[in-house]
């Protein structure tokens, strides 16, 4: 719990004329469950997407496990990484999306097996065995042959988590993983995430699930309008918010 997994220094990002991130400084430590909270449009999802270079930052420095994201530094100069190098950097970072984004033409099992075979070039038998273990871990071994359209939202999201884990990532990013789910399906996904947190995975979670942040999170960051408003231990921030903006937000969602 000491070395930094993600370091962000003065990260800026604009879409056109709209500045979405206005200088973010954050540090995520290895093994931490790091929760990002804030109203929509506060830039938390954008920040998450910058970490695996789905969005490219305009200014500042962002590194994962000591490596700059999207750039290489040599003799004080920055060199942009090419597309394949960026892809290679993403291998070790798992991501779970709000809309699941399971590959619609593949079964649950095929979804989980694809990346290890395509990216890591591992033998099929080994990948399949690992994939089945992962599906078992998320409680879906019996649904392995189903297509995403035949699964409920909660089941799809659990397959998506298994798919990300199949690459044996050192960091997992969750972009509002339960926001698109029916209320009664939220619990099963949070259970899987809790189990993952217990196993020591470093996780960055953008969420509106206050209870999850309080119980599972090690660190909580409240963002608004592209800046970090306050951060600290989830219990402290949630029960005793220092800033008015945090107070207003919490009073609405709690």
């Amino acid at each position: 719990m000491s070395t930094p997994m993600v370091t962000a220094e003065n990260v800026h990002k604009s879409f056109g004329h709209v500045e979405v991130l206005k200088g973010i400084d954050l540090e995520v430590r290895t093994g931490q469950v790091f929760c990002l909270l804030g109203p929509s449009g506060s830039g938390k999802s954008t920040f998450l997407r910058c970490i695996n270079h789905l969005e490219r930052i305009d200014a500042g420095r962002l590194s994962v496990d000591g490596q700059l994201v999207g750039y290489r530094e040599r003799a004080g100069k920055l060199y942009e990484r090419n597309e394949n190098e960026v892809a290679d950097q993403r291998r070790d970072i798992g991501m779970v999306f709000q809309r699941f984004n399971l590959f619609a033409h593949m079964t649950a099992l095929q979804n989980v097996m694809l990346a290890p075979m395509d990216v890591r070039r591992l033998p099929k038998a080994e990948v399949k065995e690992h994939a089945m273990r992962l599906l078992e871990r998320v409680g879906l071994a019996d649904q392995a042959q189903k297509y995403p359209s035949q699964l409920s939202g909660g089941q799809q999201q659990r397959v998506a988590i298994a798919r990300a884990l199949a690459m044996k990532p050192k960091l997992m990013l969750f972009d509002e993983p339960t926001s698109a789910l029916d209320p009664e399906l939220v619990g099963e996904v949070l259970d899987v995430m809790r189990d993952l947190a217990d196993s020591g995975m470093t996780m960055i979670v953008v969420t509106h699930e206050i209870a999850f942040a309080r119980e599972v999170g090690d660190h909580l960051v409240f963002m608004d309008s592209g800046v970090v408003v306050e951060q600290g231990a989830p219990r402290d921030v949630l029960t005793n918010p220092q800033h008015r903006r945090t107070q207003t937000f919490l009073s609405k969602v709690l």
Partner: peptide, 9 residues
Amino acid sequence: EAASALGMR
């Protein structure tokens, strides 16, 4: 996007 996030080229 999901494929990119998995490191696929």
